[in-house]
Amino acid sequence: MGQKTSGSFLKAENIFTVAKKGKLIGGVIEANGEVRAAVIGNRMERKTLIKVKGFNRELLKKN
């Protein structure tokens, strides 16, 4: 993926953007593995919803 996506519906095994400049702004991002971007979401723009299957926040807090 490139540097920026805005208001998109993305669904993939993993979603990666350009390491230091990549932005995911607005829309729905669904991944089975990982989502990597320098910036995810923005208070001034559209709502950004991130769904990562298998991610357990409670398990992460325990470690």
Rank of each mutant, 00 (worst) to 15 (best):
V52L: 01
K4D: 01
L60Q: 08
L49V: 12
E45Q: 15
N14G: 14
M1L: 07
G54P: 05
G41I: 06
E34C: 06
G7M: 02
E45H: 10
K4N: 08
T5Y: 03
V52W: 00
A31E: 05
F55L: 14
E45M: 15
A37Q: 02
V28T: 12
F9C: 08
K51S: 05
R36K: 15
I50H: 00
K47F: 06
M1T: 05
L59G: 11
G54Y: 07
K47Q: 04
E30D: 15
T48S: 08
S6C: 12
K47S: 03
V52D: 02
V52E: 01
F16H: 08
R36T: 05
M1D: 05
M1W: 03
K47T: 07
F55N: 10
G27T: 00
V39H: 13
R43H: 03
N63Q: 15
N42W: 00
K11E: 14
G2A: 09
N14E: 13
R43S: 06
I40D: 01
K23F: 06
S6F: 14
E58L: 15
K47Y: 09
R43W: 08
L24Y: 03
I29R: 03
N56G: 02
T17P: 02
K4P: 00
V28N: 09
K62I: 15
I40E: 08
E13T: 10
R57P: 11
A31S: 04
K61T: 15
Q3F: 12
G54Q: 01
N63Y: 14
E45I: 14
